[in-house]
Simulated scan of single mutants.
Amino acid sequence: MPTYDFTKYTVVGLSNGIGKWCFAPRVTGATSDGKDLVVHYFVPTTGTLACMFNGPLIAFALVPQVKGNVQFVQDPAPF
């Protein structure tokens, strides 16, 4: 298990339930104004035959620690 300094960082996660693995969300970045945090992510819109199995559609990211609110913003898929 990696060791994280939770006085400096927070782990955020999001879940879209169960579905085809190719469509799992992907965290692309996070920005903070020193109080609140905005986490950007996208969900792929295309897949291949290799991802026909179902699995948990989850994503986690290590981000700067915040004391305020965390907001998730879904961006369009880049492809």
Rank of each mutant, 00 (worst) to 15 (best):
K35Q: 06
V38R: 03
G68E: 11
F6K: 04
F79H: 14
D5K: 05
C51Y: 07
V70Q: 02
L57Y: 00
P76H: 00
P44S: 05
C51V: 10
G19E: 00
L37P: 04
V27H: 04
T10D: 08
V11G: 04
N16C: 13
G13D: 01
Y4D: 07
P2A: 13
A24Y: 01
V63G: 05
F72D: 09
S15L: 01
N54E: 13
T45K: 10
V70T: 09
Q71M: 12
T7A: 12
V39G: 02
M1E: 08
K20A: 13
Q71G: 03
P2L: 13
L62R: 12
L62P: 12
V12Y: 07
F23S: 08
A50H: 09
V73Q: 06
A59L: 11
P78V: 02
P56W: 00
P25A: 01
P44Q: 04
K20F: 13
P44E: 04
C51L: 09
H40I: 10
G47T: 09
D75R: 06
T28R: 12
V12W: 08
N54A: 15
V43K: 02
F23R: 03
Y41S: 07
I18P: 06
A50C: 14
W21H: 11
F53V: 09
A61L: 10
S32P: 09
T3K: 11
A50G: 11
P56T: 03
T3N: 09
M1T: 08
V63C: 04
V73L: 13
